[in-house]
């Protein structure tokens, strides 16, 4: 099997990301769910880079899409939507936490003022 340059770089980078996730999990900086999901993602990127034709054709056949290029486009769009959803969810969670914090500070300050007056 003749390897292109990207077929060496991408799997190596993916391995680096998996290693980094594992390290973050061991340091309790990432939950096991985050580590597992991240590792699965980067491993699939690495494997896809190694066997692009075989995998894209298999995806095209599975979904009944005519060309493997279309299958890649659909797959990437799906991934983008997934990450968009995840980011939006995280953003909303952070916004709610910020509001709660702002409210707590405000009410504590009000309580102090009420006690003083």
């Amino acid at each position: 099997m003749k390897l292109e340059v990207y077929q060496i770089i991408v799997p190596l980078a993916s391995l680096g990301f998996v290693f980094n996730l594992f390290r973050r999990f061991l340091k309790s900086k990432a939950s096991w769910q985050e580590a597992a999901l991240g590792a699965a993602f980067w491993m699939s990127v690495g494997i896809f880079a190694l066997f692009p034709d075989a995998i894209s054709k298999a995806i095209a056949n599975f979904f009944g899409i005519k060309s493997n290029i279309n299958a890649i486009i659909f797959f990437c769009l799906g991934l983008i939507f997934f990450f968009q959803y995840k980011l939006f969810f995280m953003l909303k969670k952070n916004q709610m936490a910020t509001t709660e914090l702002a409210r707590k500070i405000t009410l504590q300050q009000a309580e102090k003022e009420d006690l003083q007056s």
Partner: peptide
């Protein structure tokens, strides 16, 4: 007057 330390919106 109660003051939010940062702007959080009308609902907040």
């Amino acid at each position: 007057v109660l003051s939010h330390p940062i702007n959080r919106g009308a609902g907040a």
